[in-house]
Design a protein around this nucleic acid. Sequence first.
RNA 1: GGAGAGGUGGCAGAGUGGUCGAAUGCGCCGCACUCGAAAUGCGGUUUACGGCAACGUAACGUGGGUUCGAAUCCCACCCUCUCCGCCA
Length: 443
Amino acid sequence: MRANALKAGEGIFIASAAMHDIRSIRENPAAFDAGLARRGLAPDAQSLIELDAGLRSVATEMQAGQARRNEASKAIGQAMAKKDMATADALKAEVAALKEGLPALEARERELSAALTDRLLAIPNLPADDVPEGEDEAGNVEVARWGEPRVFDFAPRDHADFGPALGLDFEGAAAMSGARFAALRGGMARLHRALGQYMLDTQTGANGYEEVNPPILVRDEALFGTGQLPKFADDLFRTTDGRWLIPTAEVSLTNLVRESILTEAQLPIRFTALTPCFRSEAGSAGRDTRGFIRQHQFEKVELVAITTPDRSEEEHRHMLASAEGILEALGLPYRRMLLCSGDMGFSARKTFDLEVWLPSQNCYREISSVSNCGDFQARRMNARYRPEGEKGTRFLHTLNGSGLAVGRTLVAVLENGQREDGSVVVPEVLRGYMGGLEVLEPR
RNA sequence: GGAGAGGUGGCAGAGUGGUCGAAUGCGCCGCACUCGAAAUGCGGUUUACGGCAACGUAACGUGGGUUCGAAUCCCACCCUCUCCGCCA
């Protein structure tokens, strides 16, 4: 039992309710419901539209009342300026009567507006048209494969078995922190560091991402913006002062543009960061309990792109290539999966997962997830840009992906590079980061 | 942690209960003048929501409250700055 669930009224509810655009739902309810259906969700448009209609009728009535009140108040001011107290007092009495029902209308309007916002905040992004139909991961489509899984002349072992001899210390970490923690020691720590540095250097180099060292403790608003809240509070760690540990640097990097209006010339913006990530893993009891695959704390090099709608597909491809390049440089076989409508994360409209080959499990395991969120997060964050030669503003598109998860990459390097004697070959591109070390030997 | 100051339009900056969505300056856009430019003059220049429109409503950090009426008064929170303390 976790205590993270936001109590009613506790959360920060974004004032200018953007998220899903109620106007477009109103104009095309069938398309909205069809999108929900692809997500495996029940139709909701009808009920949202009724709520919205109720809200607008109350709002109209409220505004009419306010208009009358404002008009009379002005007249009172004018009368008082002329020292005509009799008229002023008469008007005051009149407005007082007028005002009878107004507070109730205002309260009702607030209530309905908050209710609509709450409903809209809890609805996931709708899948893009080219996302395949499917209920769960069985519906994902393999779209590419790179590299040949190595043929072993001995039975490849699980990293959890041969890792400890190389400095992967589960017991020491468990003694102080509990399950799902590990301490890396000696060459293992350095290999992990080398991986992170190599990834960061590559993303900031040829791939054009700006390095950021962001906060990893954030407030409610940030998590509402990227979509972890309000629905997934139980997956997160919360501090005693009400902040949250980020589950991914996507939160920190994307929120860098919250509530801002960018010029088209500033785009695209590409951010990368190497940060610790924290996840409660509340819903994954029993899964991946052995080894370094699923930890409460892990490091990840995150990629985030902020762009215009017409360029977000292109940016998605670039991000995918940026993540895949790391796997290829490390010589790790992987496959690219296009996630089906039922398996995508809350904020995504289209996601590719990269899965790396793990010989001990004889299968591919997720090591990166690269998503185009369209304008979904931008609406929640109120992040806009000014199109050149146009008057108003439009919502940005945001994308995020791992480039890559450092801990899982370490696992892949260990397992794919293991030798029968329990040593591990250090990939060539990392050797410069390891003082030229070519092989990690058992201690 | 203690003490103090402050958050107003793209920017600077006035406004401390009444025709204030907000003076003035800068910037920006248009027009005039000019061969052209500068200078000058005139006009314009926030956003969101509802409405076919006329128009209405809301917004002066955020959220509440007082009042016939709030940028202005009260409460809470957020943020910035200055000084002191502590600290990697």
